[in-house]
Nucleic acid binder design. Structure first.
Length: 191
DNA sequence: GAAAAGATCTTCT
DNA sequence: GAAGATCTTTTCC
């Protein structure tokens, strides 16, 4: 599906853009093969959020999150794991959606070969998603309308299919309900 | 099966 | 110099 280069549907407050991103597909071109995965869990972050990297304004690391909606923001977590975000909101506003989990749709065999882990634990965490899709720091600031990493919009899911809970793995504002996931994947981030 | 600690590095205080 | 939007492996019930 073509987006015509416009990301109007992401240019909204993160809590509005988050449910729209659920169910969309990430398409990754890697070593001549196509990897496609459906986004099933995200977390919302913006400048007003004490837990967000952008809370204290722009820095060299988080500059990508201040770009226009539809760019990628990748950061290195604990020196080991990469995490992928989709920039949302107005340009200059420093907001994004962390992709916590995806469901393999195409090229699953390639992902399994890359990771060497069972299917159930293939993409059920932000670091694993990036490992499976071969995403690293070089993709920070990448335009998601272009290869080798693209975002395909899918019809928005009915609100009844979306569950909102508190976020995971943070210490500040941990009780704020800004984690969104699709019904049917209740344990996607559990071990 | 559950809990704890190790790995490893960028960014900010 | 310390903390962090994490995952894997080890250890101990």
């Amino acid at each position: 599906m073509s987006n015509n280069g416009t990301w109007d549907w992401l240019r909204a407050p993160v809590e509005v853009a988050a449910p729209r991103l659920l169910g969309c597909n990430v398409v990754r071109e890697l070593d001549g093969s196509i990897l496609r995965a459906r986004i099933v869990e995200v977390e919302a972050y913006d400048e007003e959020d004490p837990a967000s990297h952008t809370h204290r304004g722009p820095t060299a690391r988080n500059a990508a999150m201040f770009l226009a909606a539809g760019h990628a923001y990748v950061y290195l977590s604990y020196g080991i794991h990469h995490c992928l975000n989709v920039v949302a909101g107005e340009a200059g506003h420093g907001a994004g959606l962390l992709i916590r989990a995806v469901e393999p749709l195409e090229g699953e065999d390639v992902m399994l070969a890359r990771r060497g882990t069972p299917r159930r634990q293939l993409t059920n965490g932000p670091g694993k998603v990036c490992a499976a899709l071969g995403i690293d720091l070089s993709l920070t600031g990448h335009d998601l309308a272009l290869p080798p990493l693209q975002l395909e919009r899918e019809p928005e899911r009915p609100a009844s299919d979306i569950v909102v809970t508190t976020r995971i793995g943070i210490s500040k504002a941990a009780e704020t309900p800004r984690r969104f996931y699709l019904a049917g994947y209740p344990d996607v981030s559990r071990k």
